[in-house]
Every structure is written in structure tokens, then in C-alpha cells.
Simulated assay, not measured.
Amino acid sequence: MRTIDWRDGRIVAVDQTGLPHDVRMLEIGTTAELVDAIKRLAIRGAPALGVAGALGVALAVRDEPEDRDRDIKALRAARPTAVNLAWGVDRALARLGDGPDAVLAEALEILEADVRDNRALARRGADWLLEHAAGPIDVQTHCNAGGLACVEWGTALGVLRVLRERGALGHVYVDETRPLLQGARLTTWELARLGIAHTLVVDAAGPSILARGLAGAVVVGADRVAANGDVINKVGTYPLALAAARAGAPFLVAAPESTIDPASPAGDAVEIEVRDPDELVHIGQTVVAPPGTATLNLAFDVTPADLVTAIVTERRLIRPARGERP
């Protein structure tokens, strides 16, 4: 099953707000519909957002020429922290002078390349882990960086899939990922479908999993990698990196080259998305805080480069903690 695809002139995508209980597909025919799906996280995950951005440009230049510039601007800004979205928009838009068919062809190439690239980085990540830890390797992960965050394979979970194929994966500890529970809802769903043994833990327990020696490595994805090697990922990643450093466990980031942003010199230059306060004070329909409670719903955090043992992409291995820069 592909998380996002192009079919009969429309974007078809898994509606990730329904998981794990309701597997339903969205059919998206306009850029406005796509922006809405991205903002409410029906479509999410950095590589998938890159594909969505490119396909959204194809929709805009084909069907909405009078509103094209406005709609593309709104699409590019729908999730400001994840650089892949703007990357996909800009790459497809660069073919505009060659006509709508060329724009669509570029978008479809981005879609197909995502599968190839993620398989390549997953193999590289598994190779590197096996050089630094004896299998079977027990791994901790945060948020969702599996097939649901990409087209069909996955970045961080792609690495785990390769380890499993090689008989080198032990147990996987999954952080719940408050407040929208991408770990609890999405990662556990994917791991169950793959038949990978896993245990769900609350976010606050994540560092203790490493301190107790239950996991020997951390593998996560990324929404942006700055030019100095700082990693911007789902909030809660930074504490895991601190705990991994204390425990002497490798901290591996699996992300395609499109996630590396040379225009951002360091993590503090990246806009961190602040989301709706209701996400913090509600669990489902249940209110869990008194009325009027102030909130700060940061969607991402910055892990400094010196805490990142390695970054694997489809092309290379980067070791920020040793001073290597993307």
C-alpha cells in the first residue's frame, strides 16, 4: 500500500488521522484540499510532504491557472518546519516553463525516487548500526518515520526493516509521541503489520529505556537537517539524544538528501511550528486541562549536531558528532 500516489489525475493518500482504527483513502483534486490535508496531518512525514508538494504544484498548474501563485504559496507554507514540502514545490515549479506535463513528470519522478532513495538509505543505516552494535539490536524510535511518512518504505523504520531481514533486529521501543500520538497510532500499527516485536512507552519514559539498557540504539527520522548538522525532528527527539549520549548508545538519523537544508546554517535559524493549543488540552474529545490553561504546543525540537552520532542518506554517511557537516 502506498501512503501517497497519483491516480487518474488526482492525489490519492492514506488519511492518517483515521489510523489505527480506520484505514481510509483521500482523493484530492485541488491544491486547497491538499493544503487542508497537510495542515490537519492527514498527510504527514517529511518525505511524503515532499511528494505532496510536487504533486500539488502539478494540480495547481493544470487546473487552477488563475489562482496558481496564491495556491502554490499557501502549499509551500503549509508546514514551515519540514523542508521537504518546500523542496518538492520548488523542484516541480522549476519545470513550469516546459508546461504542465513536464511539471507532472517531475512530480512523478520525485514520487518514484522516494522509494528507491529510502531503500538505499535504509541499507546504509543498517550496515552502519551493525558495525557499531552486535545483533540482535534493540532499538528505540520516536514519532513515525515508516512507510506512512514516505511513499511506501520508510526512513528510520526502513532501517529496522533491513535489520529484520538480516536477522539482526531485536526489540523495538516506540515512544507514544504526544500530543497527536504518531508513535502510538502509526508506528505501532506499521510494526504490527510487519510482524516486528515492539513495546509502546510514554514519551517521558524514553530516556529511561536507554538508561536501563533496554535499547542499545536510537533510530529516528528528521524534518530538517541544518548545514551544521543540527537535526530538527518531532518534539521529544532532543531528550532521547541526550539520554543516548549518556548511555553511550548510537543516535542515528535516517533522512533523504532532500531533508538537508544548506540554507539553514544551524537549528536556531529554523522556524519551529507551533500548533493549535487544543491538541495539548484534549485527548480525543476529552478535555484534560482546566479552561484557560496557557499552552506552548511546539511541534519540533532541535538536536545539536554534537549529539548526533550519524546521519544516513541515500548517498552518504555523515557523522556530526565528529565534526562532519552535511
Rank of each mutant, 00 (worst) to 15 (best):
A263F: 07
G292Y: 02
T286Y: 02
A245D: 12
P250T: 13
G216Q: 15
P256T: 13
V219Y: 08
R44F: 05
G158Y: 06
G170T: 12
G154T: 11
G183W: 06
P47G: 03
A94E: 15
I137F: 04
R178L: 14
A149M: 05
D268G: 01
R24D: 10
R62K: 13
D203Y: 02
L157D: 07
R10Q: 15
A113I: 00
A245C: 00
L160W: 07
L240V: 08
R24G: 08
A205C: 15
G267V: 10
P179Q: 12
L186F: 10
P136F: 07
V302Y: 02
V83A: 15
R62D: 14
R119V: 13
L26Y: 02
W128K: 03
T293F: 04
G292V: 05
E131L: 13
R91H: 12
L296Y: 13
R24W: 00
D230V: 02
L181E: 07
A78W: 03
P47Y: 01
A94D: 14
T313A: 14
Q16V: 05
I72M: 11
R161M: 08
G206N: 09
G147Y: 03
A156H: 10
A156L: 12
A107D: 07
L85F: 10
D22W: 00
D67G: 13
E273C: 11
A156G: 14
A321D: 15
P290S: 13
G45E: 02
F251K: 03
G183H: 05
A289F: 06
K39R: 15
P320Y: 09
L75F: 11
L104A: 12
P207S: 11
E279A: 12
L298I: 00
G147P: 01
D278M: 08
A294S: 05
A52F: 04
M1Q: 09
P100Y: 00
P47L: 05
V270C: 14
I209W: 08
E152F: 00
D306P: 09
L19N: 06
A217D: 10
A243N: 04
E176N: 07
P290Q: 07
D175P: 01
R319P: 01
I38D: 10
R70Y: 01
V235S: 15
P136S: 11
V51K: 01
L96V: 13
I28D: 05
L280I: 14
I232D: 06
D22L: 11
G236R: 04
L130I: 06
K234T: 09
D36G: 00
E190W: 02
D5M: 02
A310K: 06
A211K: 05
R161W: 03
E33Q: 15
A299R: 00
P65A: 14
A254V: 09
H21M: 08
G158Q: 05
V162T: 13
D69R: 13
D301K: 03
L200R: 04
A42Q: 12
L19T: 08
G195R: 01
R91W: 01
A204R: 10
V61P: 08
T199V: 01
E64W: 05
N228E: 09
D138Q: 01
W87F: 14
D127M: 04
V159R: 10
